[in-house]
Simulated scan of single mutants.
Amino acid sequence: MKTANEKNTDIQILRAIAILLVIAQHIRSRLPTPQAYHEIFNHVMFWPGVDIFFAISGFLICKTFYRDINTSISKSDAIRSFWRRRVARLLPAVIFWAIASVAISTLTESYPNTDPLLVAKSAASGILGVSNIYWASCVQFSLQCGSADYNAVTWSLSLEWQLYAISTLIFSVAGFKRGILILAAISVLFSIFPAPSFSFQWVFRPQAFVIGAAIYFLTRNIYIQLKTITSLLILIAGISICILSPLNITHPYMIPFISLGAGLCLISTLSGQSISAIPSKTLEWVGERSYSIYLCHLPMILISRELLIRLDLFTPSYVSFILGLATALSLIVISAEASYKLIEAPFQRKFSKRKLTLKSHSTV
């Protein structure tokens, strides 16, 4: 039986799958993409990988805040501890890659709309946790915001910050059972409206996050042991729903279907060690560094693109595509490893320890 403190390696593998889906979406057209790769997108889309991340976040945030509420002497103490760990986990790497995006924009001369001042403005929105509002405003109001390819990925991080704030507030005031019901009602309300890409409904979608939180709350006292084949079948079903829904489900049902698929992906990991029973050290490595990979992958793709253009190798072909992909993946691996080892891990060790006044120690 998996102990309470044992790491859920299945979730790490799911993180790896999610970030690989996102990268598969983003290399399209940014590298010299052959027609065969474009054809894939007539059948599936990979951007719902981000909704898998939302489901994981909802599950883990509910789990950690539930633990904090039940082991701290006060709600305010639990909230302080929760946010201390979240800030240590997320903010330092965002700041670094936001600054790096501005520097990279001065080097990628061939890419359109790369005014460093506009890139800096969008970078600031990511640091401040309002990137989703910023980019939705850019798209909906046709503002001059520059290229989204340097740090627009922070839109999802900003949404997560906002969902952390809303969910912890609701849980603190209403309790977890009623809190989950309130969040579910909010999700149903959001599911009524169409959510085209980078509309405000699209960048404020809470459904997968809430499904993840609900899955934790409903299974928190249940020991779940799935066989590896069962976990894999559930995972495949969830991924299939996620990547097929964008082209086969119409609004306003598309995001809810994707969120249900993300929820299935999460359910496949509940045993903790089922999927990872298959040798998967590479996927575990990717999953552990998925946050840094998410932050750095687009700038590294754009650097690879710039190198190909300067070497006159950008004409779409399999050779150019493989060369560009190999270069981009190499840069992503190196950058993510450095970001994880030098930024993520040190800040987590220094600031993210739980500093709670435990209830068991509060009486004399």
Rank of each mutant, 00 (worst) to 15 (best):
A213G: 12
F217L: 01
K227N: 11
I239S: 00
I236R: 02
K227V: 11
Y223E: 13
I249F: 10
K227Q: 08
C242M: 04
K227M: 06
T230I: 15
N248E: 15
C242Q: 05
L232P: 07
I215C: 07
P246G: 15
L235M: 07
L247S: 13
C242F: 04
I243F: 06
F217K: 00
S231E: 10
I236E: 04
S231L: 14
L232F: 13
I243N: 02
I241S: 01
I229Q: 13
T219D: 01
R220K: 00
I211K: 09
L232K: 15
Y223N: 09
V210F: 12
I229T: 15
Y223G: 10
R220T: 00
T219W: 00
L218K: 08
I215Q: 03
Q225Y: 06
I234S: 01
S240K: 01
S231D: 09
I239R: 02
A237C: 13
N248W: 15
T228C: 08
Y216M: 05
I224E: 04
K227P: 06
L247G: 15
C242A: 14
N221W: 04
I249T: 06
S240Q: 02
R220A: 00
R220P: 00
T219Y: 01
N248L: 14
K227T: 05
S231C: 14
I236C: 04
Q225H: 06
G238I: 12
T228Y: 11
F217D: 00
V210H: 13
I243V: 12
Y216T: 03
